[in-house]
Simulated assay, not measured.
Amino acid sequence: MKVGLYFGTFNPIHVGHLTIANHLAEYSDIDQVWFVVTPHSPFKTKSSLLDNNQRLEMVFRATKDYTKLRPSDIEFGLSQPNYTINTLTYLQEKFPDYEFALIMGEDNLKSFHKWKNYELILEHHHIYVYPRISKGKIETRFKDHPKVTKIEAPIMELSSTFIRKSIKAGKNIRPMLPEHVWEYVDEMNFYKK
């Protein structure tokens, strides 16, 4: 089975995340997409970042009606600060019969050469890149790399930051969140302060 790993804080998860993940699950050779919730770093204080389990709960609620999408708390038990290469190594040991690929936006690919052991990641894993409206160029070594696949997913320029600011400003953002996530955010009064 081929699993696409979609890393993020998902603070909150929104319809853009779901659209991209579902597109990959339906229109590529990826069988499942796992939303890997990045834990809150104990070394950083970021008041707008919800607790790990609250964000995992949102991802669970967002994906529960989709058979090919699922939440993952795999990084919660790994030592912090964590690097993607460590997560990939851990997953490969835990699920030796699975093939793991990375899902990232075009903007992340531009800084991929700065990631710890990025050469090793490229050697053992495919990377699926979804389009983003962003400045700067992708290095040729990644653009033409046989393990880097650019996907023709819809461009979703919706950000969790925008959603949090809008909630704080009292705006109606309900269409931007999966229904179950909106209900949870509203019920818990998240992002209002």
Results as ranks from 00 to 15, higher is better:
residue 61 R to S: 01
residue 1 M to E: 10
residue 52 N to M: 00
residue 53 N to Q: 15
residue 185 V to M: 03
residue 82 N to H: 14
residue 6 Y to E: 04
residue 85 I to Y: 08
residue 160 S to R: 02
residue 115 W to V: 12
residue 139 E to T: 07
residue 141 R to K: 13
residue 68 K to Y: 12
residue 145 H to R: 09
residue 88 L to M: 12
residue 13 I to A: 02
residue 150 K to A: 09
residue 5 L to S: 00
residue 85 I to T: 10
residue 174 R to F: 15
residue 139 E to W: 03
residue 104 M to Q: 07
residue 27 Y to C: 13
residue 143 K to P: 06
residue 46 K to T: 14
residue 33 V to C: 05
residue 8 G to Q: 01
residue 9 T to R: 04
residue 101 A to V: 11
residue 185 V to H: 01
residue 108 N to D: 13
residue 95 F to H: 14
residue 53 N to T: 03
residue 111 S to R: 12
residue 153 A to F: 02
residue 66 Y to K: 09
residue 139 E to R: 08
residue 90 Y to S: 11
residue 164 R to M: 08
residue 27 Y to A: 09
residue 100 F to R: 05
residue 69 L to E: 00
residue 18 L to G: 01
residue 105 G to C: 06
residue 10 F to T: 01
residue 35 F to M: 05
residue 42 P to R: 06
residue 183 E to D: 15
residue 91 L to K: 05
residue 60 F to D: 01
residue 159 S to W: 09
residue 162 F to I: 12
residue 40 H to D: 05
residue 114 K to Y: 13
residue 99 E to H: 11
residue 13 I to W: 02
residue 25 A to L: 03
residue 96 P to R: 05
residue 164 R to N: 08
residue 149 T to A: 11
residue 99 E to Y: 12
residue 59 V to E: 01
residue 169 A to I: 09
residue 79 S to M: 13
residue 14 H to C: 06
residue 154 P to H: 10
residue 161 T to Y: 13
residue 131 P to D: 08
residue 52 N to D: 02
residue 173 I to F: 11
residue 118 Y to E: 09
residue 99 E to P: 04
residue 74 I to Y: 09
residue 15 V to Y: 01
residue 72 S to I: 02
residue 175 P to M: 10
residue 57 E to P: 02
residue 44 K to I: 15
residue 105 G to F: 04
residue 60 F to K: 01
residue 3 V to I: 13
residue 8 G to S: 06
residue 85 I to L: 13
residue 84 T to M: 03
residue 82 N to F: 07
residue 125 H to A: 10
residue 121 I to M: 11
residue 183 E to S: 12
residue 27 Y to F: 14
residue 62 A to K: 02
residue 122 L to R: 08
residue 133 I to M: 06
residue 7 F to D: 04
residue 37 V to Q: 00
residue 94 K to T: 14
residue 182 W to F: 14
residue 70 R to I: 05
residue 3 V to M: 06
residue 33 V to D: 00
residue 189 N to I: 06
residue 89 T to H: 07
residue 27 Y to N: 15
residue 85 I to R: 06
residue 180 H to C: 10
residue 59 V to M: 03
residue 134 S to V: 14
residue 50 L to I: 03
residue 165 K to G: 04
